[in-house]
Write a protein that binds this DNA or RNA. Structure first.
Lengths: 229, 229
DNA sequence: TGATGTGAACCCATTCACAGCC
DNA sequence: GGCTGTGAATGGGTTCACATCA
């Protein structure tokens, strides 16, 4: 049979492919035609061996002694990521965040387009965000199915995120990007990726604290107890 | 001497501490006083052994046969992450994204406060976003130093992100959160974390493509070539 | 008894170093 | 000669399983 010739790229490598892709697009715009793993590594701030191993999961697309053809490699990564089609995406939640996302041009420029924005708040329904009319959350299933949506974005407050996830899964969505500061529970087979600003900041906070503790090595004994996270 | 009794939590464990913290805060709000690694694992969607190992990096704060004291553990994680102080943060870029971030209450509620928003665009200067007046980018150093800012957020267009990073580093910032779709080059010692919506979506796109390829196993041979990432 | 804390085993990711090809 | 592609070595993270202790 020999179907699925190459599938299942390791997660870690996969997460870097979009970075390489963006770099290749930039190089192409500058009319660069060839690139070595060394150069790509420099631009992506990783090391060359990693670049070569990552790219090797796609196939053997380089030329020994020369490097990689920018256009060709760009096309291959795109194809592998499924970016030779434009994916319909639905946004749940039309608050500040949902509106910002719908208006964010970076989405539509990179292989995705918003086909629906839903909310439960009657006052938001009917307004236009990102060129799409906000509809009632009850219409989610209808939108997902009529537009064959497989990717949903959750931009609701934390307390409604799980409910939104359930609705998306029920409607048939297979991947969810979660902007709410919540751990979602979903059936297996459904992919969830979480984007959480506060969480990332808290990690930076740790590093900064380590830095100050080390620099000025006089810990004056901390004691406050206000909790808010 | 025995200073720095516990420092240097492994990156992977560190990235989960804010998640546990948020769960503990929720539990505390529900007046739960004890929690087992099993329960925490359930709520965080990881396994119990991982929770125990992660928490063991902080010290031995659990009680065998019982579990963890919610309040106490919450306080310890907070302290370890440096969240018993409120970190001043500066935002570079007052466009859509920068404004959204400045207005995002999640930041100020979780141990951070915005002390400055700067931009190079004269038309944006003077307006108030998130309770802070937008000032000229030239004043960045002055703000960073007078407010002892150590964390900066880059919310500029891609083509100005490196420049913004350079300015932040020059001003003395030690950690940068980058929302621009660019790989920043910074001196070592400076921490950068990248948040990139399009990049995350592209990873979901891969998974969705795999899914459809496997379900309906008739690959009709793809061939489009439009490049946009 | 019951849940933590942790060595040991396992597994995935990164890096090295070089054979293979242009 | 130069650069890719990749086995082999290394290192970190995850999981197991159990000794340990309230």
């Amino acid at each position: 049979m020999s179907e699925t010739p190459r599938r299942k790229i390791p997660e870690a490598a996969l997460s870097r492919l979009p970075i390489y892709l963006r770099i290749l697009v930039d190089l192409a715009a500058d009319e660069v035609t060839q690139v070595s793993s060394e150069q790509l590594a420099e631009l992506a701030a990783v090391n060359a061996a990693k670049v070569r191993k990552d790219l090797s999961y796609l196939g053997t697309y380089g030329t020994r002694g020369v490097g990689y053809d920018v256009q060709f490699l760009m096309y291959q990564i795109q194809r592998e990521l499924g970016l030779n089609q434009s994916w319909p995406v639905v946004i749940v939640g039309a608050g500040n965040l949902g509106q910002a996302l719908a208006n964010f041009t970076g989405i539509s420029e990179r292989g995705f387009h918003i086909v629906g924005v839903v909310d439960k708040d009657e006052t938001k329904i009917g307004s236009i965000v990102g060129g799409v009319r906000v509809t009632h959350a009850d219409e989610l299933t209808q939108i997902v199915q009529s537009k064959t949506v497989s990717i949903g974005i959750i931009a609701t407050p934390a307390q409604h995120a799980q409910e939104a996830a359930d609705a998306l899964v029920r409607a048939g969505v297979g991947s969810i990007m979660n902007f709410a500061p919540t751990v979602l529970s979903v059936p297996n087979g459904v992919n969830v990726r979480k984007v959480d600003l506060a969480l990332e900041l808290q990690i930076l906070s740790y590093y900064e604290q380590c830095r100050t503790n080390n620099h000025l090595a006089s810990p004056t004994g901390d004691n406050t107890g206000a909790v808010s996270a």
